[in-house]
Design a protein around this nucleic acid. Structure first.
Length: 816
RNA sequence: GCCACCGUGGUGAAAUUGGUAGACACGCCGGAUUCAAAAUCCGGUUCGCGAGAGUGCCGGUUCGAUUCCGGCCGGUGGUACCA
């Protein structure tokens, strides 16, 4: 029989489909596993990143099914979003048509991969029923004050009269018409994630055992909790006059109150109200006004990179010394952090230092290192000892921070505050292809939520996609409605929601059984059983936003009484990207590999094997066509050599002691592969080493001819490989073992027994020889043998130290 | 700019807790088979003729460092409207 993946794969895919093999059971007395790969955006075709993501998830799902657990392994589509609308603008296809055609195509691609997804729970987030439940949650959030409205700055193209996403702004200009983009302040809806900042930070502790450390660190830094001093800076009389008496003071926040005597200037964000006032009242010359506008319009990354400033020509008084301090605008000061104003201490802050150098501002050092000199050409940013700081001289930084804050509080000059870097989540999008925000604007009643029985609020089908303005707002009639409260004429909100809203609760939706599906977004009993997600697998690029929003949403839904869970994802596996020729696969670079063509040529099993074998999942994966060939050749060999095994329905039993050397070695390799696979699923997730173990076992089996050993080998190896290359394994397993071996396998200790151990011998840490010693050999005997073996390197030298690391190596330390 | 990660043969990688660097593959080289080739099978393959050197670079801790610490260089992801 020849290995023909196309026949085998179709056969088993049909079998699984006909038998509904992968639908979760509603029997909640069983132990469960919820395995989830991040769902795809239906861009049109699957790419290798998806293949990788779903191959990893499928390995877990199939493994736990073998273990007899009730496994939920669902898939769906994150189907709202900008690309659908872009396609509509470019090619005139309706976003809905584009989206659902893509979904149909990708569903077929997924099914060709033999992935063990539940079919009955599949959905797309643009399905009206999904929107219905989501809008319900949003209304609850509005009523609880978690959703609110405030003004925020957006990228605005004055020509197309439309809001632009960051990626649609290219070098400060509109991607379609090249007009210079400006920031426009508009009303938007926000979710109060900042109110959950402390909990989101503290609960990271609950994830320490299941999430990669780097993701936890990134989230900690993103939330950015800091304690510091907030105080007022008063403008001097002349400055107050200049501002027509409109402003007396502004407040600043600092995390370094210990450096307060080193303040030599202060800096405002370009959006600060004082700057806005001065701009509006022509208090700047034309050129200065222009450069301030430029700062405001540039993107947030550029603002941090290239530091720019403008002197305001006004001064404040130092709160402790009364000295006059100039006020500047600095582009790197952010309006949405703290109060949008900072005290600048160039001697002790890198950014302030760079800024002071650039604009020739004075630098005053007030902290010095304990046992060293202050650097002359940079800021000293560590903690140290205070000087030039009046009564606080001689205090250590940490001590001084406290004392100075206490001093400010006692004199009522300022107060200790906690600030977070985390900003509220703006969910408004002025776009068509998203879930409408279910609110209504009534002249009499203000902003009123839609009645839940009227949900979902769906999109108008007959919108026009021109790239100008918001298609929903432009629609002639859609926004006209009745006020849900007073029944009078009202206007619907035309903003739709950020697609991160949909992906913040889709994992809950999957827990809904058919009985729940149409009535509720999810059912608490079912959530209690299935949640949390046991293994969540997805790209590292989602380490912050998606994962943070999902954690937040889970906590909000808990506080709204829908669920009891506090964190959604128990264990997280962040996969690396798939690269070709050293860079990310992308259409523009022309370095993509089409999964369909690959499956066509070699079959799904080869694609899956290659992708799991070529690198550990967390690492970037470099594509290599000939290594794919290699994976195919291995499967072919695996298939062909199954002829060495015989049919049976239980594991062959043999007497290990009576076997020959090669036979023993083969059995050892087979069981080592099994042991490694158990470890891989439990903690390491390094499927590449698991596959290598199976390959080693196959190589070892080839060195002997005992059919019991071959059969035992196939019994175990097809079981190990089934989660990775399911089609070929089901084919072999059903032919040979009636699939009885697709179940947990036991380790047999006797196969690991050895008579001798090889130990390395080093001299001064450098390996010089190798020795064979008996198991349990005395150290003295080992040392004697070791010394003899490295005679050449130790003769005539004084031995200072002898180290024996049991079963590993001997190190002889010599002098001279 | 900031936050996080990564860097090991010609290539993808392995080395589980600081303990024999390069498992397993790809590629290449050689051999068997074949009229010949493909396919398959077997063997070799870090560099260096060698002494020896060697895990991006420089330094440190240690009997011993791919692994821990400090500094640098290069690359990747994220940076709040791409998903």
């Amino acid at each position: 029989m020849q290995y023909t993946p196309s026949t085998i794969e179709k056969k088993w895919q049909k079998f699984w489909s006909d038998n509904s093999s992968f639908e979760p059971s509603d029997d909640f007395s069983k132990d469960k596993k919820y395995i989830l790969s991040m769902f795809p955006f239906p861009s049109g075709r699957l790419h290798m990143g998806h293949v990788r993501n779903y191959s990893i998830g499928d390995a877990f799902a199939r493994y736990y099914r073998q273990q007899g657990l009730n496994v939920l392994h669902p898939i769906g589509f994150d189907s709202f979003g900008m690309p659908a609308e872009n396609a509509a603008i470019k090619n005139g296809i309706h976003p809905k048509k584009w989206t659902y055609e893509n979904i149909d195509y990708m569903r077929g691609e997924l099914s060709n991969l033999g992935l063990s997804f539940s079919k009955e729970r599949e959905f797309a987030t643009s399905d009206p029923i999904y929107t219905k439940f989501e809008q319900g949650f949003i209304i609850d959030m509005f009523e609880k004050g978690i959703l609110y409205r405030k003004k925020g700055f957006l990228n605005w193209c004055p020509h197309d009269q439309t809001v632009l996403a960051n990626e649609q702004v290219i070098d400060g200009c509109c991607w379609r018409c090249d007009t210079e983009v400006v920031k426009k302040e508009m009303y938007q809806y926000y979710l109060k994630i900042s109110e959950y900042a402390d909990e989101l930070l503290n609960d990271l502790k609950l994830l320490e055992n299941g999430w990669p450390k780097q993701v936890i660190t990134m989230q900690e830094n993103w939330i950015g909790k800091s304690t510091g001093l907030e105080f007022d800076l008063y403008l001097d009389d002349e400055s107050q006059k200049l501002l027509n008496g409109k402003f007396l003071k502004f407040d600043v926040f600092t995390t370094r109150p210990d450096t307060i005597y080193g303040v030599s200037y202060t800096a405002l964000a370009p959006e600060h109200e004082i700057v806005t006032y001065m701009l509006e009242n022509d208090l700047f010359d034309a050129e200065t006004a222009k450069s301030i506008r430029h700062m405001k319009n540039s993107n947030s990354i550029d603002r941090q990179k290239d530091k720019q400033g403008v002197s305001l020509g006004i001064n404040v008084l130092h709160p402790l010394t009364g000295e006059s301090i100039p006020v500047w605008i600095a582009n790197f000061v952010l309006m949405d952090y703290g109060s949008g104003a900072v005290m600048a201490v160039p001697a002790h802050d890198d950014r302030d230092y760079e800024f002071a150098q650039k604009y020739d501002l004075s630098v005053k050092a007030v902290i010095k290192p304990e046992n060293a000199e202050l650097p002359s050409d940079s800021a000293f940013t560590d903690s140290g000892v205070l000087f030039n700081s009046k009564e606080f001289d001689g205090l250590a930084s940490n001590d001084a921070k406290q004392k100075i804050m206490d001093f400010f509080e006692a004199k009522e000059l300022g107060k200790k505050v906690i600030n977070f870097r985390l900003k509220d989540w703006g969910i408004s999008r002025q776009r068509y292809w998203g879930a409408p925000i279910p609110l209504v604007h009534c002249d009499k009643c203000g902003i009123v939520p839609e009645k839940k029985e009227n949900l979902p609020i769906t999109l108008p089908e007959d919108a026009e996609f021109t790239g100008e303005g918001n298609p929903i707002a432009n629609h002639p009639t859609w926004k006209n409605c009745k006020c849900p409260k007073c029944g009078g004429d009202a206007i619907r909100e035309t903003d739709t929601m950020d697609t991160f809203v949909e992906s913040s609760w889709y994992f809950l939706r999957y827990t809904a059984s058919q009985a729940t599906w149409n009535d509720k977004g999810f059912d608490k009993k079912e959530v209690d059983y299935w949640m949390n997600v046991d293994h969540y697998i997805g790209g590292i690029e989602h380490a912050i936003l998606h994962l943070l929003y999902s954690r937040f949403f889970t906590k909000v839904l808990r506080d709204l009484g829908y669920i009891d869970n506090t964190e959604p994802f128990e264990r997280l596996l962040t996969q690396g990207m798939v690269l070709k020729d050293g860079s990310k696969m992308s259409k523009s670079k022309g370095n993509t590999v089409d999964p369909d063509a690959l499956i066509e040529k070699y079959g799904a099993d080869t694609a899956r094997l290659f992708i799991l074998f070529a690198a550990p999942p967390t690492q970037e994966l470099e594509w290599n066509d000939s290594a794919v060939e290699g994976a195919y050749r291995f499967l072919k060999r695996f298939y062909d050599r199954s002829a060495n095994a015989y049919k049976c329905d239980t594991l062959p039993i043999m007497e290990h002691a009576k076997l020959g050397k090669e036979e023993k070695f083969a059995r050892k390799k087979v069981y080592e592969a099994l042991q490694r696979s158990i470890e891989v699923y439990a903690e390491r997730y390094t499927f590449n080493t698991m596959v290598a173990g199976v390959m080693e076992a196959m190589n070892a089996l080839g060195g002997q001819e005992n059919s019991d050993v071959w059969t035992e080998g196939y019994w175990i190896l097809t079981s190990i490989l089934e989660p990775i290359v399911p089609h070929i394994c089901w084919e072999l397993s059903s032919n040979l073992f009636d699939c009885k071996n697709l179940a947990p396998q036991k380790i047999i200790d006797e196969v690991f027994a050895v008579d001798t151990i090889s130990m390395g011998v080093s001299v001064n840490g450098k390996k010089r020889s190798e020795i064979e010693v008996g198991v349990g050999e005395e150290n003295a005997a080992i040392l004697a043998l070791a010394k003899e073996s490295v005679e050449k390197w130790i003769e005539d030298k004084e031995i200072i130290k002898e180290i024996v690391v049991p079963n590993k190596l001997v190190n002889i330390v010599v002098k001279g």
